[in-house]
Design a binder for these strands. Sequence first.
DNA 1: CTTAATTTGTCTAGTGGATGAACAAAGTTT
DNA 2: AAACTTTGTTCATCCACTAGACAAATTAAG
Lengths: 397, 397
Amino acid sequence: MKKTKTWNQHVVKQENKDLVLHTIMRYDPISRAETAIKTSLNKGTVSSLVNDLIEENMVYESGPGKSSGGRRPVMLNFNRMAGCSIGIDLGVNYILGVLTDLTGEILMEKYIKYEYESYEITMQHTLEVIDYLIARQPDTPYSIVGIGVGIPGAVDLKGQVMLAPNLNWENVEIKDKLQDRYGVPVIIENEANAGCYGEKKYGVGSKSNHILYISIGIGIGIGMMLNGELYRGNNGFSGEMGHMTIDLNGNLCPCGNRGCWELYASEKGLHAAMAAYEIPPQSNDQRDLEYLIARARQNDERALALFNTVGGYIGLGVKNIVNTFNPEQVIIGNRMSSAQEWIEPAIREKLDGTLWFQKEGLHLEFSGLSTHSSAMGMAAFSIENFLKSYQYSQTAL
Amino acid sequence: MKKTKTWNQHVVKQENKDLVLHTIMRYDPISRAETAIKTSLNKGTVSSLVNDLIEENMVYESGPGKSSGGRRPVMLNFNRMAGCSIGIDLGVNYILGVLTDLTGEILMEKYIKYEYESYEITMQHTLEVIDYLIARQPDTPYSIVGIGVGIPGAVDLKGQVMLAPNLNWENVEIKDKLQDRYGVPVIIENEANAGCYGEKKYGVGSKSNHILYISIGIGIGIGMMLNGELYRGNNGFSGEMGHMTIDLNGNLCPCGNRGCWELYASEKGLHAAMAAYEIPPQSNDQRDLEYLIARARQNDERALALFNTVGGYIGLGVKNIVNTFNPEQVIIGNRMSSAQEWIEPAIREKLDGTLWFQKEGLHLEFSGLSTHSSAMGMAAFSIENFLKSYQYSQTAL
DNA sequence: CTTAATTTGTCTAGTGGATGAACAAAGTTT
DNA sequence: AAACTTTGTTCATCCACTAGACAAATTAAG
């Protein structure tokens, strides 16, 4: 049975209602008349759609606004408390969960730090975090509209986790598990995709339609927003650029190849280069970032040089990315972004080596939401998903 | 003045008409009833839209078809001769022009080979080719629906040529020039984008929605089709992956950086490596490809080894591309594709080194249209552009 | 050979949503 | 106080899609 999408007046209404809702969200507060102008819809049409939205609890009136020489407008507000969204950032040694309203504002958060555990324990922690947030949600008409979980690994389009090396997960199913338990839509996504979406919605990426978000932690992952939409690839595995070869004859990577970018430009890279700069390792795992930042803060020459070197490697990859995508904005996110001060000059220097027309309108920035971009991005996925679908599901109201 | 796209019955009709037309194009010949089923539109709606299309000369009836136990259907055909399209591939030392019908079938072509000349001479040759094809076009209701020109260089979204190093062009305007002269819509595009589109429409890419087309000639350029649409980047300069660094400490590239991919994996790469394999250069420019292929055909060990090495470099870049995009299909096009026999094994070997889930559903292929992908792609751009717009412009009919 | 069933394509009445204009209500400016 | 503005609702109209009836054309069955 082949089903092509056809266009009829139902779709028209759906789309226009969505347009009106998003216009109100964006300009909140705004009058009906102003909304009609912004959307270039007819006043009457807007009126009728707004009344629908009010009945559905998505919009409310907040009394008269300022007159500009005529009848005072009735201001409309997006009902940010029509429901709540939950976003989870499943880190390698932490879990961050946020409960947000429908504008993505954080109402509550829960952070757990733990050392590496088995899959079962990790899941148990995750459920605890979700339970905690659900138990404390405010009273809203739609309650929890969805749960999103960001994973540091490859997730396919169906939400299956194919491989999360740092969690030691392979072929893990958690979407249905969570969906069954909580009875709400669940979205599983790659952590870099989530971070990219978070920055686009609530961070430094709000004005760009072509964003490459580079999540640099232990490894490197990329989230890409192209033409205003997240690109996932054929199966959902786009952005695995940590394993881009930048050095033909470089060191061996656990992935089996030589000279992968993340060996040079991630926390792994920092760790590997410490010996060369005669900086004694602090611990025997690879998490020296805070330690190195502390030293850099005290103007330790070796640490500064090290950051400069790694910054250069990051810049090299960024240059490759710019040549590939011709983006509007490149955002450096995740843990490495806290070293902005010491790596940024080296990155920018490399970027100067790209062809002149690539630099036109290109912005390099660092994460605006810092540690929260992933969790907030996942919450945003669920919100957007809800806004696209509530109009069907709630016909029973 | 902010204009958001709103949805009304005009848009609905437009979209449905487009859907019907494309359905007829795809299943040609097909009856009205069958079209209604395929599009899931109402029979009456299809009838009315088809009659519009017939009046507009886009569709015609070709008499009764086979009955399946009832009244015999009236078969509908797409009127491939409603107009013609012209596609030009502006090569470094040749110009290929094709005149096609609206299905992209080549009705006539004109090939000119010439040594490098100034911009003025090149343009003069281009005009000659176009004039030649226009003079010989068949009689059609819409005549020439557009002209597309593929350029081996960076073209911005407005059709300005920013830089075409191998043509020695910088900041050249030809779109308006052609448009003024011929009075039809003109599209200027990067040659790799054109090739990608050509392969998607008429070549080996017809079934894929996520295609990376790698145009390997003197240099390397990429055309990408993501989610079924060509991706151009923020300004139109995506796909400049020839200058992706794959060797940190590699040789200097004219672009100012070290170890660019195209130094290793293009015709430049072949040329550079010839000395190491003790193959005497044949000419003093960098076009030894035909010469090397001739030697490989005779099983010349050195030539085979050389192709194997360069194939490995190509494969390395393809691996990077696969990790970045998670594509459905990778197509090797342009001149280097004629060495398929000798480079393919090395490329596939490198591809085996990618993570297992990246390989799922991934197809590596070589250009199906060979030397014609760019020109046909450009013709296809003009056709698609016409099909999207004729419904507005021809209201005066 | 007649009759029933099937398929195609047109036509008509009805539905739903957008539009434009009229209008009342509620302001501001002169 | 009068004239002008702005807002938001209402109503008649338009337009595209839909469902269902129907005639024409054909095959299948008795």
